[in-house]
């Protein structure tokens, strides 16, 4: 089990690191997707299959498409061949500073969490239980998220439906 965790972690972090290092944006995007799939694998390893499938569906299935679309539509002037700008002292200082800030926040978050060192039983949650939990205790949050998403969906539909000029050949 631990071996699998190490493998998943290496896959996740390795692909994420590579995604940052590579100059080819498409490779970076694809590696980012691999990293997301690694997150899903981690959820699966942890026994949360519902979350894992949702992660794959949303990130690998949908958000990856948006990322790839953005990359394909914005990649203009051969960015792959552009020389790397010389690192200045100011840039290095900013990078170190922001990395330190992030590290501090993460460290604070990790240190403030109290870990139980007992071997925890993996809770056998079924989808039904998750649903009931969402509907009862987290009902308000679910409702808000649902309303926001539905409004977004309706907004997209209305944006698509309001078409100023129509030609006969545009008929669906």
């Amino acid at each position: 089990m631990t071996l699998a965790l190490i493998f998943i972690a290496v896959l996740m972090l390795g692909s994420a690191a590579l995604a940052m290092l590579l100059r080819n944006l498409i490779y970076s995007a694809l590696l980012l997707i691999v990293s997301w799939a690694g997150v899903a694998a981690f959820y699966l390893w942890a026994g949360a299959e519902f979350v894992a499938f949702a992660q794959v569906l949303v990130y690998v299935g949908a958000i990856s498409m948006v990322v790839l679309f953005a990359v394909l539509l914005t990649r203009q002037n051969h960015s792959a061949e552009l020389p790397v700008e010389p690192a200045t002292k100011a840039r290095a200082a900013t990078a170190i500073l922001s990395a330190a800030c992030l590290g501090a926040i993460l460290a604070a978050a990790i240190l403030s969490t109290s870990f139980h060192h007992t071997a925890a039983e993996a809770p056998a949650t079924s989808v039904r239980q998750i649903g009931l939990e969402l509907m009862h205790r987290q009902g308000a949050a679910l409702l808000i998220v649902g309303v926001i998403l539905t409004v977004a969906l309706l907004g997209a539909t209305i944006l698509a439906a309001t078409d100023p000029k129509r030609k006969p050949e545009d008929a669906p």
Binding site: I26, L30, I33, A40, E49, F50, F53, A54, V56, L57, V60, G61, A62, S64, M65, L68, L72, S126, V127, R128
Partner: peptide, 24 residues
């Protein structure tokens, strides 16, 4: 699977990614 439907769509979603890879 308990979340079989979700699994089905998750597995199916990756095929279009492969089509993108093929095309690119």
């Amino acid at each position: 699977l308990d979340a079989a439907l979700l699994y089905f769509f998750a597995a199916g979603a990756a095929t279009e990614l492969a089509i993108f890879m093929a095309g690119w």
